[in-house]
Write a protein that binds this DNA or RNA. Structure first.
Length: 198
DNA sequence: GCGACGATCATCT
DNA sequence: GATGATCGTCGCG
């Protein structure tokens, strides 16, 4: 069943990032279904988080959707090339989000191979935020879509990783100062071979 | 298997 | 005009 609006609209974005591990992300783009288990996430907690696009209440056309009520998608382009998938959380007016960083593919794997042009190693299909967006058929045009719809959604299949198999560590790729540089707001499933890196 | 590096452009100042 | 919440390739060994 789909995760509820209440799940997303809680204020503790760090907890939500952790709880998203083991959930199933689905897309149906042009009628084609793809799915994967979320194995790696990062929390971004606006407005106090230096790493967040909403740091210090920053509000621009790009990040406007971060201020919507939780349960919608925030897509943006990084390095001019890569589309990133984020889950907006919290109540309307707050600006938290969770970056989905890696999936373990479970459905539509052939479709992912076509989209990614990787035929040999399925572990690379959804390895990293830019890669998984491409594999799942997501791009900036999907910004602001609701997770209660039938284009992008997340399901709880009753599978939860052991708490002691969840690793919390520092986020990747941020060129910022302490303490946010090394605060442990990145989560992944230990020993999973589909994460972007250790 | 791993580190270095260049690609590439939307976005903000 | 500068800057990335990155990725694929290359060289190495």
């Amino acid at each position: 069943m789909k995760l509820s609006t209440e799940f997303y609209q809680r204020e503790d974005v760090v907890l939500i990032a952790e709880e998203l591990l083991g959930k199933y992300l689905y897309t149906r783009i042009n009628g084609e279904l793809a799915a994967g288990i979320i194995v790696e996430t990062e929390a971004y907690r606006g407005p106090e988080d230096l790493g967040s696009h909403a740091y210090n209440h920053r509000r621009t056309p790009r990040n406007e959707i971060m201020y919507a009520a939780g349960g919608v998608v925030y897509m943006y382009i990084c390095y001019g090339i890569h589309d990133m998938l984020n889950i907006v959380t919290g109540h309307e007016g707050s600006s938290h989000a969770v970056l989905i960083r890696a999936l373990e593919p479970v459905e539509g794997i052939e479709l992912m191979r076509e989209r990614r042009k990787i035929l040999t190693d399925d572990r690379k299909l959804c390895k990293g935020p830019g890669a998984l967006a491409k594999a799942m058929g997501l791009n900036k045009s999907h910004n602001a879509i609701s997770l209660q719809g039938d284009t992008v959604w997340i399901e709880d299949k009753g599978f939860n990783p052991d708490p002691d198999k969840m690793v919390a560590t520092s986020r990747i790729g941020l060129n910022i100062s302490e303490p946010y540089k090394s605060i442990p707001w990145r989560f992944y499933i230990a020993n999973n071979s589909f994460i972007s890196r250790k």
